[in-house]
């Protein structure tokens, strides 16, 4: 078994997380409840209230381990465990590729458009936004940044002609 996978695809990551989750949950669930919901959990009562979708960053093995640990903690709570088993606890892989790079709390965009979605994502993660000389902030993104109160810093090109 290799210690470190050089690059995992999204499908492989999902499969890995799913198998680990299955093991963790099986260990923690009482006997006989594997087929259905554990007793004492109102299965239908909270079905209509989906948990908020959480963005998960999976870039390394450490990230994956941290995520699995977090899910194991979630499974301690019977209600959350039921939500996890029913697939009502939402997880979403955070986008880590593209022209935008995150480094120490700063979301930096080098080229192309800085969209409203990027501003919202930066605000959610508590990042500062730096717009490179060749990137352009759209009017909607500027409005959103102002309403969310997040700092947008525009870097100007060094040479002028």
């Amino acid at each position: 078994m290799s210690e470190r996978e050089p690059s995992l695809s999204t499908a492989e990551l999902r499969a890995a997380v799913r198998s680990v989750l299955r093991e963790v949950l099986r260990d923690r669930l009482p006997e006989g409840s594997a087929g259905g919901l554990p007793e004492g959990v109102p299965g239908s009562a909270d079905r209509g209230t989906p948990a908020p979708v959480r963005d998960v960053v999976l870039r390394s093995d450490a990230d994956l381990t941290a995520f699995v640990r977090e899910v194991a903690e979630l499974a301690e709570d019977p209600q959350r465990r039921a939500a996890l088993r029913a697939g009502r606890h939402g997880f979403r892989l955070a986008a880590t590729a593209g022209a935008a790079a995150v480094a120490s709390g700063v979301l930096r965009v080098e080229r192309g458009a800085v969209t409203e979605r990027m501003v919202r994502r930066a605000a959610d993660a508590g990042h500062r936004l730096v717009v490179g000389p060749r990137a352009v902030l759209t009017p909607l993104a500027r409005d959103r940044a102002r309403s969310l109160g997040i700092a947008v810093e525009k870097e100007h090109a060094e040479k002028e002609d």
Binding site: A113, E116, V136, T138, P139, L140
Partner: peptide, 23 residues
């Protein structure tokens, strides 16, 4: 117009070089 320029700017940035967007 704001929604349209948002979508247009994103596309332009992906396809080629976006120079400016304004409303």
């Amino acid at each position: 117009v704001k929604a349209a320029t948002e979508a247009g700017a994103e596309t332009a940035g992906q396809v080629g070089d976006l120079v400016s967007v304004h409303v």
